[in-house]
């Protein structure tokens, strides 16, 4: 996944990070760094929604990226949400109980409207 496949839109204190393509070992580090760099440019962001609607697959390194961003947001007393994961990724979240720490929503709209 290249930098171009990572888009961030910000509205007030909410950022939507849209990922495109697989998140795997080969691209996970670059992706994490790019995302953190974008987030660091705007200190007002306290809600980060990661839109996974265009991510077909993520391996354990991909899960690592999400956990790293979870910690990043927590360190600025913010929160992280996941939106529109496919069934396979949703299953990963359910089985590994990550849903207990990171809220997962079926649609982006749902994630955006949550307080």
């Amino acid at each position: 996944m290249l930098e171009e496949s990572l888009e961030m839109q910000v509205e007030e204190n909410t950022a939507v990070l849209k990922l495109d393509g697989e998140v795997i070992f080969d691209n996970s580090n670059q992706l994490k760094e790019n995302a953190k760099q974008k987030l660091s440019q705007n200190k007002d962001i306290s809600r980060l929604i990661i839109d996974l609607s265009r991510v077909p697959y993520l391996d354990s390194s991909g899960v690592g990226v999400l956990l790293s961003l979870f910690k990043f947001m927590r360190s600025r007393e913010g929160s992280l949400f996941i939106a529109e994961p496919n069934e396979k990724i949703k299953r990963v979240f359910d089985v590994t109980k990550m849903t207990e720490i990171i809220p997962v929503y079926n649609s982006l709209e749902e994630a955006v409207t949550q307080n």
């Binding site: 910690k71 590994t96 109980k97 720490i101």
Partner: peptide, 18 residues
């Protein structure tokens, strides 16, 4: 047999109860 659960990670911190 489901053997899931949270992984060991510094992003999560120690999670004894889990």
């Amino acid at each position: 047999i489901n053997i899931g659960g949270l992984p060991i990670s510094t992003a999560l911190g120690a999670i004894e109860s889990e």
